[in-house]
Write a protein that binds this DNA or RNA. Structure first.
Lengths: 204, 204
DNA sequence: ATGACCATGTAACACGTTACATGATTGT
DNA sequence: ACAATCATGTAACGTGTTACATGGTCAT
């Protein structure tokens, strides 16, 4: 149900499905993704429901395009959604599930490699977002305290990405430090740490 | 595809679908969720594929139960998955999408209310996890540096939850401070901040 | 002419949720 | 008797991905 509202919200000016995909991929990719094969049918349905209206337009390059814009009904639908409070979905962090059961491999080297892969990925993401912010600051004289309302809200979401990646990296470092400490201890005195479950699962 | 591996990983001792649901709800709920209606068919499929084997057992209370355990094939399947590196799925943070388009409402009071709802929720979650950790520390003399390997890895995932919620709260506070500052400014000198998009979307 | 990009779509499949259906046992 | 908990499942629906199909324009 969320993609409906997201498309409605991104349609500030008339845009095609292809445009919306580009917007999603550029400014939004750290917290949302969608494929064209999902966007096109969704736009059609939103039009049928009266939230959008479409018209044909030509494009310099390639085929003709279909531009959509939000109707009054669409705007009020979007406002209702925004006023309904935060939509929390439950997060599915597959990599955390993997760490949870990493003891299966009985080898802390694997855990360490795994954590280092997470760190590499997140460091790259963090650098990416930092650059986005830096370039924005250079380009826009109003940055960050005199942005228009739309850009201001956009910046808040960018800050969330920066906070998150930084904090996950800190977590990675903590984990790596602790895993290394355990490995040193095991090497010092030939694995005295019990391998059997002490109270496996339940309130982890 | 992930639920398959998660069930395999959670099955350290023989357990029923109902048990697995309880494990998911207790130790894992801050990063994964699944319904019984999804778990039961998945277990059947995993058995058909040779990763699990089942036997009937009675239970004190209620009906008979079906206990599953992991086969050798299942263990090696799980090991392959764990060694294949972190599975990053793209995150869908609906509430961030909502903030992104919150300027639609042309009223910072709404943004503020929204952020305060996020803060309330996350504060509760953070307190919950802090309690889990505190009780664990009191209960288990090996905590946190002499846990068995399984519990150690479990603790790493708990730490991730603690880091995340704390960092999101910090982000909330930063946002709330900035929104309040903007509201004060607007009150001082009747809305001089441009409302029109300066460069809407694109690299946000 | 080849590949990169613009542009729109359909079909099949995979994954996940909600609602429904059944029935036993235990505690109040 | 009633509600809560144990226990297993099916059916319908909603959402999201991958693969496939089509065809135009532009630069090399």
């Amino acid at each position: 149900m969320s993609l409906d509202h997201i498309l409605l919200g991104l349609l500030r000016e008339p845009a095609s499905g292809y445009d919306l995909k580009a917007i999603l991929d550029h400014g939004i990719r750290h917290f949302w993704a969608a494929e064209l094969s999902q966007i096109y049918p969704t736009l059609k349905r939103l039009e049928k429901q009266g939230f959008l209206r479409s018209r044909r337009a030509s494009s310099k390059r390639g085929a003709g395009r279909v531009l959509y814009e939000v109707t009054a009904k669409g705007h009020s639908q979007l406002a209702t959604w925004l006023e309904s409070g935060p939509q929390f979905g439950d997060m599915r962090h597959t990599f955390l599930a993997q760490i949870y059961m990493m003891d299966e491999l009985s080898d802390f080297t694997r855990t360490l490699e795994f954590l280092e892969q997470l760190r590499t990925r997140w460091r790259a993401r963090l650098e990416g977002l930092k650059n986005v912010e830096k370039e924005w600051a250079q380009r826009d004289p109003g940055f960050p305290d005199h942005l228009c309302s739309a850009a201001f809200h956009r910046h808040l979401t960018l800050r969330m990405g920066l906070h998150s990646y930084a904090c996950w990296l800190a977590w990675c470092d903590e984990c790596i430090r602790r895993v290394r400490a355990r490995m040193r201890k095991e090497n010092r005195n030939g694995k005295p740490i019990p391998v059997a479950a002490v109270g496996a699962h339940r309130r982890g």
